[in-house]
Write a protein that binds this DNA or RNA. Structure first.
Length: 106
DNA sequence: AAGGTGACTTTTC
DNA sequence: TGAAAAGCCACCT
């Protein structure tokens, strides 16, 4: 559904700088539980420069793009720029950097 | 129409 | 700690 895609993009757009969110989390926030893969698909097809797609990582706190993709490096550097820390294995500590959605978002 | 695929997640071994 | 398997769902042959 196109409306669902729009909802997903809206949720991603609300992720604050310096924080990240997982695919599953975004799906839930968008009202689409268990559609994590749909989120991934939306980002792949849309990849809008208007939205902070690079703040979306998988449940391990890892960049989910396959190696070799230029976008992976772009995402990595973009997150570093926002203050997100990666460990030696290029993983994010989700317990510290995962986005905690605000209850009230006018 | 049916089966393969994937920017995922969670459980098991 | 980590790899493997099983769920899942929309999209593409």
């Amino acid at each position: 559904m196109d409306a669902n895609r729009q909802r997903i993009l809206t949720v991603i757009a609300q992720i604050p700088p310096g924080k990240v969110a997982t695919y599953g989390q975004i799906a839930s926030l968008a009202g689409l539980p268990r559609r994590a893969r749909l989120v991934g698909r939306v980002l792949k097809t849309c990849a809008d420069p208007k939205i902070p797609w690079y703040r979306v990582v998988n449940s391990r706190g890892e960049i989910s793009l396959r190696s070799g993709s230029e976008c992976q490096q772009v995402q990595y550097e973009a997150l570093l720029e926002e203050g997100v820390e990666f460990d030696i294995r290029r993983r994010i500590d989700l317990s510290r950097f995962q986005w905690h959605p605000d209850p009230l978002t006018p």
